[in-house]
Design a protein around this nucleic acid. Structure first.
Lengths: 232, 232
DNA sequence: ACCTGAACACCGTTCAAGT
DNA sequence: ACCTGAACACCGTTCAAGT
């Protein structure tokens, strides 16, 4: 056999490629063995069984997900930028993210983003429970949106054309509305609008910290201005 | 032989019960046959195959979902009440709803709720595209939240205790925040707060009804107006 | 018209046996 | 230490044969 020795890493790499391409259901032990050019049973020696193989892939995804860097002029903008970066990262590996989620590792995967949101919530003048609420509401919003979006893409043909549903209903009362609802969802625009609305609502009534406080907010105190604590 | 004649309805009823109890994966043709007391192959005569059986269950769920009736003093409250009713309905049959979603029937399932939201958006003074945006943002918010919630419940044990993650991070800067983030998510409260914030944001700047076309843009109607404001 | 068992091609997994 | 084929218990599905 010309095959070089099989390694756990190689098994994981090939398995990850299969999952990215065809989803978890597209990963069969026999198919993976064929892709690797080995016997099915060799895989078991390296990764145990299918379930722990998927566990390993999820674990990998958690560490693969890099840090999130907010940018923008004010806290609201910077919070929105975190939401957008998060959405993009999630959408790049939908199947793997779903696996992370099913295994209860979402919290850990989101830690960098959570921390960034905490900083921005503080900068916006929210503290304590209200800051926690913002962090979680934004995180839920992003994950939820991506989940809905993914499902929509998987099943893009809505059985009755939306037109049909809305024309009779509201055409007379509000034609632009009927037209808007008959058009396909513009996912990017809707996401931006939803995030903006949510953040606006969450920050409503928040009193920004005084100018003196905001300039040097109580960071880690290590004096490394410009570099976030997530740089590693 | 004591078995009365099998009917399509009976097959669907028993299959739905199995899906509600054990999820779609818990529905095997052999298991269903055992529950019905017939041969596996009899099921095929009545419903074709497993896939079309699941299709039928999804279709059923769509029609089962009753109309949504808003209640509350003002539009914001009534919109929130629709969101809450929707969430409850979805949570009562998570597996079936997921199946509806996978089959692209969500739009149809949501039609009653959509219509209710349109009415409230109008009452709040939103028209045209902005009203459509509200309808969709709220719908996405609810579905997304329920999806996240369901996944969280399925995998309740987050691997590192949240305490561990947050104590060191923010305990000094904002102890109440650290405490809040270390506590388990209060799903009802968070949902209520998120919906409230989203609706507040969406209605911000809306003028009372009687005003004419407000947000109407000089658009040719090609549907691809402007790229999102958040193109990073 | 309705039901049946046998058979087929797929799974994931185990295990004794190889090197 | 690493790999293998054979075998087992599951799948969904088809089909000729029953009544």
């Amino acid at each position: 056999m010309a095959r070089p020795a099989l390694s756990r890493e190689e098994v994981l790499d090939t398995a990850a490629a299969l999952v990215r391409a065809h989803g978890p259901d597209g990963l069969t032990m026999r198919g993976l063995a064929a892709a690797l050019g080995t016997a099915v049973t060799s895989i078991y020696w390296h990764v145990g069984n299918r379930e722990s193989l998927l566990d390993a892939l999820a674990e990998r995804t958690v560490t693969d997900l890099g840090a999130i860097r907010p940018h923008g002029e004010d806290p609201a903008e910077r919070i929105a930028s975190v939401a957008h970066a998060l959405r993009r990262a999630l959408r790049e590996r939908p199947h793997l993210v779903a696996m992370v989620h099913e295994r209860g590792l979402t919290e850990r995967m989101f830690l960098p983003a959570h921390r960034a949101l905490v900083r921005e919530a503080h900068a916006a003048g929210l503290r304590g429970e209200r800051a926690a609420e913002l962090v979680r509401a934004v995180a839920f919003q992003v994950v939820g949106y991506v989940l809905v979006e993914r499902n929509r893409e998987r099943a893009p043909v809505q059985s009755p054309a939306d037109q049909e549903l809305w024309d009779a209903e509201t055409a007379d009362a509000d034609p632009p509305l009927a037209r808007a609802l008959a058009a396909p969802v513009e996912a990017d625009r809707l996401f931006a609008a939803s995030v903006r609305a949510l953040v606006t609502g969450l920050l409503a009534g928040a009193t920004a910290p005084a100018a003196g406080d905001i300039g040097d907010k109580p960071d880690t105190g290590d004096g490394s201005v410009g570099r976030g604590p997530y740089s590693q």
